[in-house]
Amino acid sequence: MGRIRRCKKGIQEETVFVRLVDGRYPWEGKVEVFKDGSWGTVCDNNWDMDDANVVCRSLGLGEAVEVSTFKDCCFQDYQDVDEGLNDIFLDEVECLGNESILLDCPHSGFGVYNCNHTQDATVKCETGIRLVGGSNNLEGRVEVFYDGSWGTVCSHHFDIIDAHVVCKSLGHTFALSASSYADFGQGKGDIVLDGLHCTGGESNIYECESDDTNFFKCFHQMDAGVTCSPEDYAVFLVNGSTYLEGRVTVAYQGYLGTVCDTSWDLKNANVICKSLGFGHAVSINDFGPGIGDIILDDIHCVGNESSIFNCSHGGLGVHNCNHSQDAGVTCFGEDVCITGLCETNIFPKGKMRN
């Protein structure tokens, strides 16, 4: 399930009647149901998307995206699939799709089955990450699904790169901001993750490294939040001493990275500055190496383009350089909120890792 170490803090209040186990991520796995104080599996006879949807919706995980059998899927393998496993509780499940929990669906009878654990039903749900408390679906407190319930993310070291991975996993292109201190309200229940350190290339935050050293200092007052962008691309200045300068960082179709300084000149820099709402470029500078992908190289702007992506370049992701050649610019203007960046602060100073 990735390299992340998960920490739990708080009291789980809800009774869980279904869970997913042995998956790579908490929103997929073998289906187990709870009854009379114990857990048992579900046989895959007649198992279909209607049944899987009831499971996913009852967990708050949206719609099901895939159903399969134990033997056909990617979950944990056993030399003897019947040894040490839970009982089989349900078989011949035939949900209509509108039931609230799986136990409400028609089935052959509790504990009545004609199968073995090689036929355990599995499901993959939409996602185990959601945004809560925002004014729309592009923003909110980050909540993650773990061990049958939803929990929050502590904002220790939570920055724009971590936020970018959150937004990308939800189908958005990139993050506009990473927020701390429960800007979208305090969550309830467990605090699940702390000390995230994503590189930007992960498909979800369960693939990111984490450090739970300071987990004991986490409280819901520090719940992390994000604001995602509806746009396909954006340009940011990172690691400068003011909002008018920095290393050029671009987001495009879910990828976050830098621009190589091969053929980099003031015409290119002017396009960057104007697209951000600043004046012309004063100089091209080195603001240190970035991380992530190198998105653009061999850029040749005329100077009147509205975006750096409209300039001639070698192709998205095509480059012959490394991060020691990341391009930077200094724009002309006052260090004020010319375009509102000081307020929304797409890449807040002190929030972006070099």
Rank of each mutant, 00 (worst) to 15 (best):
T339M: 15
D22C: 04
L266S: 07
C56G: 06
I272D: 06
W39C: 10
D194M: 08
E305Y: 14
D183L: 07
F34V: 03
M49K: 13
H313W: 01
A163T: 01
L102K: 09
D211W: 00
D120N: 13
V238N: 07
V112E: 00
S324V: 02
C228N: 00
M222Q: 15
E99Q: 12
I161T: 13
H117P: 10
T122E: 14
R353G: 01
K267P: 06
V248F: 08
I11F: 12
V21S: 08
N268V: 03
W39L: 07
N270S: 13
R6A: 12
N320P: 05
E245H: 00
I191F: 11
G292D: 01
T118H: 15
L131W: 06
N98G: 14
K8W: 05
H300F: 05
T15I: 14
V42C: 08
C228A: 12
I291N: 10
T118R: 14
G277W: 07
Q12S: 12
N320L: 09
V18L: 06
N270Q: 09
K188S: 12
E305V: 07
K349S: 13
C218F: 01
V336N: 08
N204G: 07
S108K: 09
V132N: 07
S100T: 15
N53M: 08
D22A: 13
F215T: 05
A234E: 10
A178C: 00
I294C: 05
Y233F: 13
H117Q: 12
C154Y: 03
G140P: 08
F278S: 00
R3I: 10
V142M: 07
I291Y: 12
P106K: 09
S68A: 09
L176H: 04
F70C: 00
E14D: 08
D87A: 15
D36M: 12
N98W: 14
K9I: 11
N239P: 04
E334A: 10
H319V: 10
F174V: 01
G60I: 02
C154N: 04
C167D: 02
L170A: 10
G133S: 05
R5A: 12
Q253H: 15
V112K: 04
C218W: 09
L103F: 01
K30P: 01
Q79P: 00
S179D: 06
K124A: 13
G340A: 11
V67A: 04
D293I: 02
G225Q: 10
L138Q: 11
F287G: 03
F70W: 15
A224S: 09
T339R: 11
T173C: 04
I272C: 01
S58Q: 07
Y146P: 02
D232C: 10
F278L: 07
R57G: 06
V271L: 03
D104G: 03
N214G: 10
N45Q: 13
A64P: 04
H220Y: 03
S306H: 03
G189S: 13
F236R: 05
G60T: 04
D72P: 01
A269Q: 02
T339S: 14
R57S: 00
V21A: 10
G171K: 03
A178K: 03
F219C: 08
V166E: 00
C337P: 11
